[in-house]
């Protein structure tokens, strides 16, 4: 008995009010092909592999492909107690039995890198800039829980960068406990100098003039902290830890890890974060190290425009107090 024979038909696929929503849901779907890895790869090893790969310039020129690999990478993981303690104490969180959302990000980051380091990934892994990150946490992930992370890429688009065009991509990672979706992250990366023809072109984002909010705190950035974050996150991209490398990419000095800066801003909110939320981060300008940044925590009733502006939460802003320059604009919207 085939249930298909009884199906009424595809009547719900007619264009309707939910078309847009369904369309985006469809592109969110996990690719059909899934490669299961024994573990989340160690980011350092992925970097080294990328650096050592002969015959393929990975820094500035684009690879041979112009489309995203239709594959997802999957690995089981458990959150590491010691690493969580170190992470929490570094960014200013309490080291509980459950992880802050940024720790889940660093715990699955190796999967993202492994995907970007593949030969069929169209953008150069090193030198890509993390421009935005959106994490939806349905419940906190616990230490020792068996989790499954699945990462895939979507939405390869062109976007104006300075006078030229760059290419941007979303890396989606789902973390599940059994079947239960616990955490979902979308990291948006930009390859500034890679241009692929034929992609959808995004409008140049509007940047309203930045008006600094009332600061509620701040911190000094140091190379030591960057190195500590590199150690605990595994993100040893030399742009964060070596001045020479940073200069190679056109920065005056090393730059702080974006997710480190964002996590410190989130930690400033403390326990009001709650357990279920959407944490959206936009990285406006890199934080140069050493230096000092200001953070502002503001309560808002309509914090997340992506959700129609109905959700209450907090705006968390990080900026350079001397130059009045925005570094990170982030929001925490309660579920």
């Amino acid at each position: 008995m085939s249930r298909d024979g009884e199906w009424i038909g595809d009547w719900l696929d007619e264009p309707g009010a939910e078309t847009a929503e369904r369309a985006s849901a469809a592109s969110d779907a996990v690719p059909e092909r899934i490669e299961t890895l024994a573990a989340v790869p160690n980011p350092g090893a992925v970097y080294l592999g990328a650096l050592g790969r002969a015959g393929r310039a990975i820094v500035t020129t684009s690879s041979l492909t112009t489309s995203l690999p239709d594959v997802a990478l999957r690995a089981d993981l458990t959150l590491d107690r010691e690493r969580l303690d170190a992470y929490a104490h570094l960014v200013g969180e309490r080291a509980l039995d459950t992880a802050p959302p940024g720790f889940v990000h660093v715990s699955v980051f190796g999967l993202q890198l492994a995907l970007m380091g593949r030969g069929d990934f169209p953008l150069p892994m090193l030198g890509m800039v993390h421009v935005a990150n959106r994490i939806e946490q349905l419940r906190p992930a616990g230490v020792g829980e068996t989790l499954t992370a699945t990462t895939w890429a979507r939405r390869l688009v062109s976007r104006p960068v300075g006078d030229g065009m760059g290419t941007q991509v979303d890396l989606v990672t789902e973390v599940r406990a059994g079947g239960e979706l616990v955490w979902q992250g979308v990291s948006t990366y930009l390859a500034r100098s890679t241009q692929i023809s034929g992609l959808t072109v995004l409008d140049r984002p509007e940047h309203p003039e930045f008006v600094a909010p009332t600061p509620t705190g701040g911190w000094d950035t140091t190379l030591r902290l960057s190195k500590d974050y590199a150690a605990v996150s595994g993100d040893r991209n030399p742009i964060h830890t070596s001045r020479l490398a940073a200069r190679g990419f056109g920065y005056r000095s090393t730059i702080a890890h974006g997710m480190d800066t964002a996590a410190r801003a989130l930690a400033a909110l403390g326990p009001r974060r709650g357990d279920a939320f959407t944490w959206s981060v936009e990285f406006a300008a890199p934080v140069l190290v050493p230096g000092r940044v200001a953070v502002g925590v503001e309560r808002r009733d309509d914090v997340d425009p992506a959700d129609g502006g109905t959700r209450a939460g907090y705006a968390l802003t990080v900026w350079d107090p001397r130059r009045g320059r925005l570094h990170v604009a982030s929001t925490l919207a309660h579920a």
Partner: peptide, 11 residues
């Protein structure tokens, strides 16, 4: 072993 005084007092 990994918990600070602050972690424990808060908890």
């Amino acid at each position: 072993a990994g918990a600070s005084n602050l972690d424990m007092l808060t908890t």
